[in-house]
Amino acid sequence: MARSVTPQRKAFNTAAAWAVGLLIFFPILWTILTSFKTEAQAINDPPLFFFFDWTLENYAVVQERSDYMRFLWNSIAIAGGSTLLGILVAIPAAWSMAFVPSNRTKDILLWMLSTKMLPAVGVLYPIYLIFIRLGILDTRSGLIVVLMLCNLPIIVWMLYTYFKEIPGEILEAARMDGATLKEEILYVLTPMAIPGIASTLLLNVILAWNEAFWTLNLTAAKAAPLTAFIASYSSPEGLFYAKLSAASTMAIAPILILGWFSQKQLVRGLTFGAVK
């Protein structure tokens, strides 16, 4: 039941909320605006808001100089690859936990989550060493595996909560109807869980895309994704605001769009179902 309020009250709420919203969004807005300025306009005193000569020059320069497409491709391959791989491993596991629970299911779920809580820095060197030994340092496949393992607990967990909402009777009906386990998962469970699988996919692509510990420490040139691309602007290029902004905009735009689509599922995925 939405409570009715006076128009004045609503206007006040609206004004306050928009003001706060714009304030929080401002750094992103400012970055996007600056990316269309010339370098001189970008550091103009006083700052220019909308009235400047809009230019796309920075995007061209950034692309030319740092080969944005290569970093982008690495990001897509790493985020997408690790998530898809994770989902393939997680679907059977989540099926087991949701539909054939045993008294250990809860412990296994919690244990899986607890692996997510291990501070990465504590195992940085061993992973580094393993990567060198296996010759997968600075490769996409190496990062795909590490990020898959990082996010696997979240993927299993999210799928588990979505699967739990599917009534077990439907799967039993499929079993009675003669479906094998494979057919049951392929023809009945997966199509029914598509929305849940999609939002799991989305959230984990975002998390993998923004992951900035392993991607910075395990890549150099070949497999570096956008997180590293931006970190390379740390200095001295960072002083070229317009180019920094163009690079930043290119790095965050794809995921910002995905994120807006997935905002509804975000809470559930990030709190492991503790807040609904």
Binding site: E169, I170, A173, M176, P191
Partner: peptide, 10 residues
Amino acid sequence: MVFQSYALYP
């Protein structure tokens, strides 16, 4: 078997 919830494939 006919289930209580009908268990139709939605």
